[in-house]
Design a protein around this nucleic acid. Sequence first.
DNA 1: ATTCGTTTTTTTTTT
DNA 2: AAAAACGAAT
Length: 750
Amino acid sequence: MTVFDQNLADLNPTQLEAVTLPHQSALILAGAGSGKTRVLTTRMAWLMQTGQASPASILAVTFTNKAAKEMTTRLSSLLPVNTRHMWIGTFHGLCNRFLRAHHKDANLPATFQILDTQDQLSAIKRLLKGMNIDTERFKPKEVQYFINGNKEEGLRANDVIADDFFRRKLVEIFSAYEAQCQREGVVDFPELLLRAYEVLKSNEALRTHYQERFTHILVDEFQDTNALQYAWLKLLSSPRTAVMAVGDDDQSIYGFRGARVENMRLFEQEFAQGHVVKLEQNYRSYGHILGAANALIRENANRLGKELWTDRGHGEAVRVYEADTDLSEARFVVEEIMAQIANGIARSDIAVLYRANAQSRVIEHALFNAGIPYRVYGGLRFFERAEIKHALAYLRLIDNPHDDTAFMRVVNFPTRGIGSRTIELLQDYARAHDCSLFSAVVGMSGTAGGKLAHFTKMIDGMRFDTQHLPLPELVDHINVHSGLLAHYKAEREGQDRVDNLNELVTAAAAFTQIEGYESDITASTSGADASVLTPLAGFLSHAALEAGDNQAQAGQDAVQLMTVHAAKGLEFHTVFILGLEEGLCPHENSLSDEGGVEEERRLMYVAITRARNKLYMTLARSRMLHGQTRYGVRSRFLDELPEEHLKWLTPRLSNYNGGSNGASYDGGYTAWEQTAMAREQSAPSFGSHKAKENTTLGYRMGQSVSHAKFGTGVIVKLEGSGEDTRAYINFGTKVGIKCLALNIAKLERL
DNA sequence: ATTCGTTTTTTTTTT
DNA sequence: AAAAACGAAT
């Protein structure tokens, strides 16, 4: 019996049904932990094993590089197939591949560069300056949001309806931005998809070629697709294509970047036509964990309907811990982690999850002091570091001198006497002649012109000197000859940056090893203009699209720290979810979005369902946030979890809605838990204080106040006394009730 | 032109 | 708290 046969035999009946569906489109509603990836990979293996499909006729698309890698690995473990020639990747990665192969049809230079979010923002800032636009009225971030939002709906500037002055101006900026990108030969993230979509739409020969080639399309995490991705899939499939979409509406957490859960219903009608398979058996979590997750997600309206079950037994109740401060929250987590490690749980099987990247600092500090190895995902990633972006900018200029974003980044870094006035003149000349900054240099005179010419000569010289060098040596050459290495070596705190620059050479070498799809582009697209992608161009798009897992030492057994978003698709023996406070979870910025709270609830659902055996949820009554102490109220999501699944390690204090305050002690605490509880209880807990009259800094119940950010509200409850007085203030339906420290919060009495 | 010090703003999540 | 933007001095 082969590995594949064994795998097939181990599937449950519903999974088997999904894997062996006949040649038709279908929607697989796959709950958390129901074996979604397994179904997907086994389906691909099954198609090939039974001769229904060849590796080249399968297109498998995911959202994250991690998921794509996972799929590839698992597929190769099932079947001896060369996955390098298969189209498995992210939407962005595959579109990049497509555009590289058909850059002429897409009206792009062979060496087009990809702008990441940062690059795009600086390109927009530059554009707004050039157009003399008031960046107070048109904030670069908002312009970026506008442009990307429209592109994700498949709209170009002239497709957008503008009925007032403000929107007309935005459209005008959008249009100028498109022209700028085109002139510079750069594309942003949504552009990759939109451009690929447009090429397929307008070029019938190409469309037919791919429609006939891909007889099977498989889409992972379908609930995260946006309108453009949906349209792209529709274009790529003919009536004879079998499209299998796997998704879970309850795990849709990317609404902020245009994801549309409705696509699932739409897909069911337009593609699947009723062929729906529901995977509802959860193989991951114990009953209490799953029970909590199910109860929470039931609070959401508008679900496709699905209830997970497990036969793994109840397991342990979810532990809830309310700490005094974020520091004591971190201390508790670290102590429990130490206990878990002592119990023989692998460090890499323990995860600490939080809502925002900024929350990682405190916990990192505590882990570091305890000497526990950890690994942080997200945050500032390798390819996003300033020194790396500088080096990449030089590389980009070598590949494409007309990339103005790259030009601006390094024309005066390290400093070479080219200041803002010189740049301004250069930009004026470039605009007047409708050319790139690089080309505009010839039009500059005087000393400034000489300095600029020196810079462009240096770039040209580097290109000439490196034309026959292998990629890693090329990178090293640039590090040296750009002056970057020397610059950082001279800096007192520059050693880390020097190390990173050298690390970039290593990354280039590693990339050279794994890279190897160019040959496939050439082979797969007969008739099309198959250009040879240079290793450098390949490396640069790799840098933009993958941004690199920020820490290289992946091999070490370390505790995993990440945001809930980053944790999707992963599972761990033990999971800690931090910061269960209103304002953080749900995040205060989400409250004003339509459906924002429901998305936050799904986020919490994703977090809970990451845990296999043990789950902790913690909150801190006070927390350093944005440089000041903020007092939080227990998250509504905690109150939505049934008591039967929870075990409170600290007394459950009453909250503003007067919810149940009965602490549930069911005995059987571990020694760790007992010391932790004793510590929390010995600390003065403000819930036990009685507010004394006249010592509340002059505030009283029912008083109306105004806050710079939250607007006007009314005090509904006062706690503590003197300098420590805190007030619960109702700021209305949009903001809700906030707990603020009266000596810190800048309130105005009304 | 560059550097240094001060002020202001910003902080959700990601390809 | 940290980064970015701004402004004054060199």
